[in-house]
Amino acid sequence: MSDLLRVDDVHKSYGDEEVLKGISFEMDRGDVDVLVGPSGSGKSTMLRCINRLTEIDSGEIYLDGENVTTPDTDVNALRRNVGMVFQDFNLFAHLTARKNVTLGLRKVKGLDKAEAREIADAQLERVGLLAQAESYPAELSGGQKQRVGIARALAMDPKLLLFDEPTSALDPELVGEVVEVMADLASEGMTMLVVSHEMGFVRSAATDMFVLDDGKIVERGAPTDLFENPEHERTKSFLQGLNSAHGGDG
């Protein structure tokens, strides 16, 4: 069992509506997998089940061979290993960029101030924002906020990073800087599970693409294969829709 992440027949309902209808997939270390699919297909729910911001109804999720969906799993320990980047950034609004990054290091990992600061500054530099370390979120652009969000997740040294539509709240001209950071992470071997319709990123960085529709993975494969020879009707129509929406995209 060398998979870093194994998702096994996960089901999740909200009331009467079943959002996830038996999802299974696995990721190796260093994989960059992208979940695509129409809105409401369960992509974000799937991500949130992995770090247990949402509790699954049935099925199992293994991180590094360990079942993390048991009742006695320490969710806070799990979340130390699984970072998350949010669509609307969710930077801690009262803290500077640097303190956004150090909070987890100080209060979760118990590092002292100097150590935390050193790590934070290294991560802020990695996303190109060391100069903005003392800025508050309200003083940053959307793209900068999201890069701080990535630095905050990276600082915890996670085994897996989850990205929940990291660029969809951004103005188009700010998408590039975030995608660039993500592509850098991918090339450095970070294991990433990404919900995104940013096809530029998918083509350049994704190992595999999972197409979700109506709570199921209807097709999976390398992006080039799926783009060129989509087998499933849903995949075809979805990718066509994306291409026209993004003006041809390559």
Binding site: R79, R80, F86, F92, V108
Partner: peptide, 8 residues
């Protein structure tokens, strides 16, 4: 949510 997501 973000606070919980970093393990707080």
């Amino acid at each position: 949510t973000a606070a919980r997501a970093i393990g707080l």
